[in-house]
Simulated assay, not measured.
Amino acid sequence: MKADHPSGFAIDDITVGPFAHGFGTAADGRPFTFRTVRATLVLELYRADLDTEVPGPEDIVAIAQAPVTDIDLDDERSVAALVRDMVPDAVPVTAAADRDMTAVRALLGRISAVIDGM
């Protein structure tokens, strides 16, 4: 799906369902990704001057989160509308050093996500 709007906002790829995810470009030209983590949609907005196709954690400039309990995750339009509404509400992130995660914490987070998905 490519959801274009006069504002310049576009979703280039979207997968719906309980593990909805995708990526696109905000109205100001910055790329973003989104994914469902438990009952929350997490949006990561990246810096505009990326020099790579796949941004890393150090490229994140803002994050937004919203509950998905009030939308139909099987409907592309609902997911796209939520993502579009989340972009302006994205909160700037702190320095990359503050966001670093230990390997153990990352592993526990992944195990927790798998258990919650069962």
Rank of each mutant, 00 (worst) to 15 (best):
F9E: 07
A10L: 09
I11T: 03
D12I: 07
D12Q: 13
D12L: 14
D13G: 09
I14W: 14
I14L: 15
T15M: 13
T15P: 07
T15K: 15
G17A: 14
G17E: 14
G24M: 00
G24D: 00
G24E: 03
A26S: 15
A26C: 14
A26L: 03
A27K: 13
A27H: 09
G29P: 06
G29V: 07
G29K: 15
R30H: 10
R30Y: 13
P31W: 07
F32D: 09
F32K: 05
T33C: 12
F34S: 03
R35D: 15
T36E: 14
L41F: 00
L41I: 02
L43Y: 01
L45W: 11
L45T: 06
L45N: 08
R47S: 04
A48N: 07
D49W: 07
D49A: 12
D51K: 10
E53A: 12
E53N: 06
V54I: 15
V54C: 10
V54S: 10
V54N: 14
G56D: 05
P57G: 15
D59T: 02
I60M: 11
I60G: 06
V61M: 06
V61F: 02
V61K: 03
V61A: 09
A64H: 00
A64Y: 01
Q65Y: 10
Q65G: 09
V68Q: 03
D70T: 11
I71A: 01
I71Q: 01
I71T: 01
D75P: 00
E76R: 04
R77G: 05
R77S: 12
A81K: 01
A81L: 01
A81E: 05
V83T: 01
V87N: 14
P88D: 06
D89A: 12
D89W: 04
A90V: 07
A90K: 06
V91P: 03
P92M: 11
V93E: 10
V93T: 14
A95K: 12
A95R: 15
A96Y: 13
D98H: 11
D98T: 06
D98K: 10
R99A: 04
R99H: 01
